[in-house]
Design a protein around this nucleic acid. Structure first.
Lengths: 338, 338
DNA sequence: ATATACTTTGAAAACGCTTTCAGAAAGCGT
DNA sequence: ACGCTTTCTGAAAGCGTTTTCAAAGTATAT
């Protein structure tokens, strides 16, 4: 069928240039100096024969795959493309290939199809890889970098994430400063670290203003529009009193908007709403959403940088926290009140 | 550093099970029947030694990489994740790996780093690979499937795309039916086939209602928010008379919204606006955008299916057109008028 | 029994590179 | 000129599989 088989190999090049294959390999990789004229002949032969070294053969001989793997569990609409973009760009600059794998919950595979034998290192997003697999890779000294998740206790694996807590503090503090006191918080998925940190920020901001934490104001948002919608609807139905909502993330904020509109509560006049992430649509919904910008593309780039350090045998930073930034738009109401 | 090197190989397994490596290979791949008891011993040995065959060695020996490549040029925010999701899911179901490569315009590489030697086949999105490279791959009989782009003349390469023209016709026809006559069209990027077909649909719909095509109503949108904003601003500034805008795609529609709001023209009362794609935010901007749903995840899945056919030596369909679907929301104004 | 045809099996040859090792060539100091 | 480094270079040994080939073992048909 396809004729990959007939293309030139290193021996063809060697023969054509009148040198040994070792020499060809050397000009190919620049591992050892080669006489100028021979190098020239080899280069010409490579060009004429249109020779491209087979990655598989290289990998087998050198034990390096020259590719790194990206593992993630969900392609969250607005979030993921930015992460991928950062990773892709930074990685290809360094000459590595990118193998992508998504571990959907419904895929009951034992052996992970991505790991030591087909990559030189792994980029792991949130909880896409279970603790045991991470531990196993760590034990065999396989380079990994985690994004938005801390490693299991005792393992020194680099982590890149954003200032979730700071972001949440800024948001909630902003709301309080502008007169809101009863602020609903919608939690993200269980075990999601981003959510845990955001809740911590929420609590700290309240405490800083001497507002007692009120469990009835906390509900489940799951970083998901529909869940947030249902949760808020229930709060309203139960007659819970609140004048603001920190939705957990921007997706959930959409659900909050819907519930509020249905209940004829005005945003921001009756209820201020804030999200998290500053996804693409945040500025275009109505009213434009006040949120926190998470530099997710930069998280991707940084993760690659750290992984490359590891691959080069250098020391990597064990934790890189990317700054978040408050983006004030209209849903918090401060543009009118203040 | 890392100890991939010390893990079990096929010979270890063979020794442990008391058979030859050929036999191990056979139970591994099921290529030839093996006596039940021996097979059992081999399986146990594999489990005990925790043996995983090295992909590189397999590839070298069998000349199959068991991975396919995805080439694209841009990670369009709202569009791309769905495509990737479809591809990823379908591909891993079939046991293939996914290698991802983005050909940014500013990357001046000669040899494409993705192709015959590191993949068994390629999925190509729009114009991410130039004609020559496609022609070269076609010539060596390398399996490719194109998404949203027709192959160069004379090459029978499968194409998966959506009913762009039909979608555009539905959209424009809908506008006309509801009384709009002077409809602006914002073109996508030069050479982008989606855009060309949408324009064709735009023209056909006009013709069907005996509305003459008016070049002054056509401008450049580039499927980009900012460009669309600028173009529309200029149209307004030039005093061009129009009562509707077909923005080319949803991203451009955002720019149109902005320009219109700035000019104090009401959507849909003064100007109806429609987009294309039905990206995630389309239902949440204000007013909610009337658009056409493009089943992009399904395009990804279908592309994989066709590529797998090719890989299995079967005949693939040369063209698969996925149906588009009109999604009527509020920006077209029909919910009030009709 | 005997010739004939399957089944199973292992030895060994690829697959296309990198890398080690030792030797040849060249440069240098005396 | 003569050793002693220092550079280059090629032969050959892997890397870990798949696959071909022929032999050995079994069953079937005469």
């Amino acid at each position: 069928m396809n004729s990959k088989s007939n293309s030139a190999t290193i021996s063809n090049v060697a023969a054509h240039a009148g040198v040994s294959i070792a020499t060809v390999s050397r000009v190919l990789n620049g591992t050892t100096p080669v006489q100028a004229d021979k190098a020239e002949r080899v280069k010409r032969a490579i060009a004429e024969l249109n020779f491209v070294p087979r990655p598989a053969a290289r990998t087998l001989a050198s034990r390096k795959t020259n590719t790194i793997g990206l593992v993630f569990s969900e392609i969250r609409g607005a979030f993921f493309p930015h992460l991928l973009k950062g990773i892709e760009a930074q990685l290809h600059e360094a000459g590595y290939e990118l193998l992508v794998y998504s571990t959907h919950s419904d895929r009951p595979i034992k052996r992970k199809p991505i790991g030591e034998h087909n990559t030189d290192g792994l980029l792991v997003f949130t909880t896409s890889l279970d603790k045991e697999e991470i531990a196993r890779l760590y034990r065999i000294n396989f380079p990994i970098v985690l994004m938005h998740e801390t490693p299991p206790a005792g393992m020194d694996i680099p982590v890149i994430t954003v200032e979730n807590k700071d972001g949440a503090v800024m948001l909630v503090d902003h709301l309080i400063t502008h007169g809101r006191r009863r602020i609903v918080f919608l939690r993200g998925p269980d075990g999601h670290e981003d959510s845990q940190w955001r809740e911590r920020g929420y609590r700290e901001a309240l405490a800083a203003h001497d507002i007692p934490f009120d469990e009835t104001l906390v509900s489940s948002g799951e970083f998901d529009q529909e869940t947030a919608y249902q949760s808020l609807k229930k709060l309203i139905h139960n007659g819970v009193d609140f004048d603001a909502v920190f939705a957990g993330d921007d997706d959930a904020a959409i659900g909050v908007y819907r519930a509020l509109k249905e209940a004829n509560r005005l945003i921001p006049d009756d209820v201020a709403v804030v999200g998290f992430d500053d996804v693409d649509f945040a500025g275009y919904i109505s009213p434009p959403l006040t949120t926190v910008r998470a530099p997710i593309e930069e998280v991707g780039r940084e993760a690659v940088r750290q992984l490359l350090s590891l691959l080069n045998g250098e020391q990597a930073q064990s934790l890189v926290l990317k700054r978040t930034e408050l983006v004030i738009r209209e849903s918090c109401g401060c543009l009118n009140n203040s």
